[in-house]
Design a protein around this nucleic acid. Structure first.
Lengths: 152, 152
DNA sequence: TTCTTTGCAAATCGTTTGCAGCATG
DNA sequence: CATGCTGCAAACGATTTGCAAAGAA
């Protein structure tokens, strides 16, 4: 995601207005590596800005996604997650408990982002690895043990 | 996604049952490259199996995702899309109209899928490019022209 | 027979929308 | 001041859940 200053310029260029709500949301996302949901951000933001509405938050998030400043992705937990980190990296998502962390650098494609693909003007790229986290693997093992015991 | 036969074996190994509904859904997904939503699949399936319920479809889709046989992803249109294609490829998603197509082969990471990353047992990987499709670019251009005319 | 799965319908809940008042440029 | 933005609350709609009946193994 670009800086608050650059985003402000971008909004004004589009004939839009730089409001305290937009700035607050942009600030909350800056350097955020927690892959927050809208609810996560709302909880954080309302501490300092109690009147902020979820509707406004969604509106600002959606425009950031359309601008390619933030990526939106799905972990299977029924909540949409957002990530302002558009630098080369990949996420690691657990297929059972749906937690997300950034994948080790070695796992990410070093291929440069093309400007154009099949006539599409490319803005950003997203990469996710899906598997089972250490905790869920232990859980699965424990369940197998139980099944074995039942056989005995 | 693995073959119907392999999936049948997998279900039985887990102590599950191979039902006509599961088979029908597996068949519908086999070789599907359209990135269907649950509703898309439901419409297709109920032609031959009118009593199939959406609840069952969602249940079967969710278990396929948990097994790593199918990937679930989000295009921003409010519908979850599914893809049984777990071979190396990437999707191209329009940030404005939310359509999805497979990206050209050249755009996909040639990096082999690791079996393990940060303690996670890796099952599958997903890669998406986000940008603006030709039609939405034309739309944006048309809108800019209108603005210019307004200045005159 | 046993235990999983199905189907129906209702419930859930994340997200969007409409509109009147407000604030930015 | 003109227009875009906000907040509220209601609407929406995709997905999930509970439970009784059905059917694999």
């Amino acid at each position: 995601m670009r800086s608050i200053k650059e985003l402000s310029d971008h909004v004004r260029q589009q004939g839009g207005k730089v409001t305290p709500q937009r700035i607050a949301i942009w600030q909350a996302l800056t350097n955020d590596k927690t892959h927050p949901t809208a609810e996560d951000l709302y909880a954080r933001l309302t501490v300092a800005m109690p009147t902020l509405s979820l509707a406004t938050l969604y509106h600002v998030l959606n425009e950031l996604v359309e601008w390619g400043e933030v990526r939106r992705f799905d972990t299977g937990d029924g909540h949409t997650h957002f990530d302002p980190n558009t630098t080369p990296h990949a996420e690691l998502v657990c297929l059972r408990c749906h937690t997300v962390i950034d994948a080790p650098k070695a796992a990410y494609t070093a291929v440069a982002l093309p400007h154009e693909l099949a006539g599409y003007r490319i803005v950003t790229r997203s990469e996710q690895y899906f598997g089972y986290c250490p905790a869920c693997q232990r859980l699965a093992n424990a369940m197998n043990l139980t099944s074995d015991e039942r056989i005995v």
